[in-house]
């Protein structure tokens, strides 16, 4: 039976909230095997993997912080997947308990109990890659604990002794990993943007989290992942071999006066999912 657009969108929210993508789960399983027997790291990863299974089985959210919802909708779907339909799906998914009442007026702290208001959820319409003639709707849910660990650096940075070169970029990324410790729910994934203006920096860094973890890493990504994991911060900051699962880096042009390095920190619960519509 064909699902209506509304049903497709509610199902997208449900599965994004309750199911961890297979590439992320595989990376966590690999990390679990690598950690030492009897260590806090192994115990944390065992709990994480158990939690992933339990959430999927029971159709309950992987994490109670169901985060900021960001939708990426192909422009060709704009008349079908409208803002109104997306908001209706978010309201229904909230009522069903797939989303926490997680949307607050910034200063008063008043809750928009159905998770919709002007600006929530975040919806981008754009030209995104197609598959078999079908266009995508992608949802990312990013929790506040990890978002709080995202940072933006402006080079040169005197405190880090980081200049406007590749060494400087590396220092920013590793400093961000060190500052995050376990607070962002390590082992996390980093999206990095080198260059751009401040806004493009954060947007591009966050968009890197959409890339599959198992795609081939660049030389810089590989080097930084090794170095980040050598810090020994470990799962949830209790020490261990796995501080990050992956680093994804993109570049954007900059103006002569600015050189930003932006790091988007994502927790292990990297909740992203795409549906393809004809």
């Amino acid at each position: 039976m064909m699902m209506t657009i509304e049903e497709e969108l509610i199902e997208l929210v449900r599965r994004t909230s309750c199911e961890i993508p297979s590439d992320v789960r595989t990376a966590l399983e690999r990390a679990f095997r690598r950690e030492e027997k009897g260590s806090p790291a192994k115990s944390v990863l065992r709990t994480i993997l158990g939690n992933i299974a339990l959430a999927a089985e029971g159709s309950v959210p992987v994490c109670q912080d169901t985060g900021t919802l960001t939708f990426f909708v192909d422009f060709s779907l704009r008349r079908k997947v409208t803002v109104g339909k997306i908001k209706a799906a978010v309201r229904e998914a909230t009522r069903l308990g797939y989303l926490r009442k997680n949307t607050l007026s910034p200063v008063s702290g008043r809750s928009f109990d159905d998770n919709t208001c002007d600006g929530a959820p975040v919806i981008h319409y754009g030209d995104y890659p197609k598959k078999d003639g079908k266009a995508q709707v992608t949802l990312v849910m990013k929790g506040g604990g990890s978002e709080n660990m995202s940072r933006q650096y402006s080079l040169p940075d005197a405190e880090l002794a980081a200049g406007r070169d590749e060494e400087g970029v590396k220092k920013c990324v590793l400093d961000a990993v060190w500052r995050a410790q376990g607070y962002g729910c390590a082992p996390g994934v980093l999206g990095v943007c080198v260059g751009g203006d401040r806004a493009a920096g954060y947007e591009t860094a966050k968009a890197q989290l959409l890339r599959p973890l198992d795609e081939k890493a660049s030389k810089l990504e590989k080097e930084l992942l090794e170095k980040a994991n050598s810090l020994g911060i470990g799962p949830m900051g209790l020490g261990g071999k796995t501080t990050l699962l992956a680093i994804k880096i993109a570049e954007r042009p900059r103006v002569p006066a600015s050189f930003f390095v932006t790091v988007a920190y994502m927790c292990w619960a990297l909740r992203r999912r795409t549906i393809w519509l004809g």
Binding site: T47, I48, L54, V60, C63, D65, L238, C267
Partner: peptide, 13 residues
């Protein structure tokens, strides 16, 4: 006491 961050289903259970 540190509970495992993000392990919401396990804690809820």
């Amino acid at each position: 006491v540190q509970a495992t961050g993000g392990a919401a289903a396990v804690s809820a259970a």
